Simulated assay, not measured.
Amino acid sequence: MRFSDVEGDAIGFLVARFELPASLRVPSPRPPEFYRLYGTGGDTMNRALDAPQLTVDAWAEDDEVARRMADDARMAFLDRRGELPLWRRVEATSPYFAPDPETETPVYRFTVRARVRATRRQTTPAPAGG
Rank of each mutant, 00 (worst) to 15 (best):
A98R: 11
S94G: 02
F97Y: 14
L86W: 15
I11E: 07
R2F: 00
S28H: 06
D71L: 09
Q122T: 07
P127H: 14
R80K: 07
L20C: 04
A60L: 01
Y96R: 13
G41A: 08
D72E: 15
S23R: 01
L20P: 09
Y38A: 00
P106C: 11
D50W: 02
A76S: 09
G42I: 01
A73Y: 12
G8A: 10
T105D: 14
P125M: 02
Y108K: 01
D62N: 01
P106K: 04
T111H: 11
M75D: 15
M69V: 02
S4R: 09
P99R: 00
V116L: 04
M69W: 05
Y96D: 12
E19Q: 14
L49S: 00
V56N: 02
V116P: 06
L24D: 10
D9I: 01
R113L: 11
W59V: 01
L84G: 15
R109I: 04
L37F: 06
E64S: 09
F18W: 14
V90S: 14
T40H: 06
L14E: 14
Q122G: 05
P31Y: 10
Y38N: 06
P52Q: 12
E61C: 02
D50H: 07
F110E: 13
T55H: 00
S28K: 03
A126I: 02
T123G: 03
Y96P: 03
P85S: 04
E104A: 14
A51Q: 13
A60M: 02
P127L: 14
A114G: 08
E7R: 03
I11Y: 06
R115K: 13
P106H: 11
R17N: 12
L24P: 05
F13Q: 09
P95N: 13
S4I: 14
R109L: 01
E83F: 04
E61M: 06
V116Q: 11
W59Q: 03
V90K: 08
L84V: 05
P127A: 15
M69T: 03
D50N: 10
L24I: 04
L54M: 11
T93N: 14
L84F: 10
A66Q: 07
F110I: 08
T55C: 08
V107W: 06
R17F: 09
L14M: 13
L54D: 07
E104D: 15
A92P: 11
E7T: 05
T103L: 12
D57K: 00
V116S: 00
D63K: 01
F77Y: 13
V26S: 05
A58S: 13
R109V: 13
P31R: 07
E19F: 12
L84H: 10
D43R: 08
V107P: 00
G39H: 13
P101I: 06
P29S: 07
A70Y: 03
R74G: 12
A16Q: 15
N46F: 03
S23C: 01
V65L: 02
R88Q: 15
A10Q: 05
A92V: 10
